[in-house]
Amino acid sequence: MSTTALTGAPLLAVRDLSVAFDRGRRRVLHQVSFDIAPGQRLGLIGESGSGKSLTALAVMGLLPDSAEVTGSVRWRGAELLGQGERALARLRGSELAMIFQEPMTALDPTMKVGRQVAEVRRLHRSAEPGRVRPLVLAMLSSVGLPDPVRIADSFPHQLSGGQRQRVVTAMALVNSPDLLICDEPTTALDVTVQARVLALIDQALTREQAACLFISHDLAVVAQVCSNVLVMLDGRVVDGGPVDRLFRAPEHPYTAGLVATARLDLVEPGSRLPVIGDFYASGAAGPQ
């Protein structure tokens, strides 16, 4: 199942991406295919263990050595699978960036966060003496951190979870990437902070005109950022399409369950809250 781009060649083209561990005995991702066009935002939704993060890590080339990856991941037409660490490192942080789920441990505890953001810039754009610091401060304030000078001179342990996730977002955006992969960027945050960080990522994507692969287990969150969604279950893509179509007419019973649990405003007061199991019994209906 693929979401075909409306205009031009895709930025990222993933075909039959499969991942296995234990010398092929444990297959965790089965022939995942999708395209992302420049500026397009694609949501990847499913429960934990459905293979969303693996898909993202496989695209970034950050899976552990023990993983066997097959299929094809093309970036601007060039194959990424099988590329060396050096070639991938040149793309990562520059054209492809990623925000991870856990902001508390994502930053180096022994380095001031301003230096960590500046480092990502220097790593890819070498000759800018004296211009990096102002850029970093501007970046920090653009991700909604007031008093960027104080934040830049802080160590990670001196910042809250929401502040750290903004710093990580600034690191991901500092080189204006063409594709931003967000792996549950708001899951570890308080609900109130979640909404703000989400709005901020949305604004940043619009400003940078960057494409996005947005991973979440929460359809409501994905719907805020993305127009198209893929639904994953047990390492396979089982459903997909525009968000409003998915809400109106889910193809797969699992999607119907996701939609029902995301639309709690439709639940009759006094009746039991829906759970995904009402619509889809895991293992009962085989994946398509």
């Binding site: 990562r92 942080g93 480092e119």
Partner: peptide, 26 residues
């Protein structure tokens, strides 16, 4: 195995580069 090494690699360090820059001090 720390998350910040993965962050560093996602930011463009090679595996060894991330270790050198962010791993050794820790």
């Amino acid at each position: 195995e720390e998350d910040y090494i993965r962050t560093a690699r996602a930011a463009g360090w090679t595996r060894l580069g991330a270790l050198w820059r962010h791993g050794l001090r820790n």
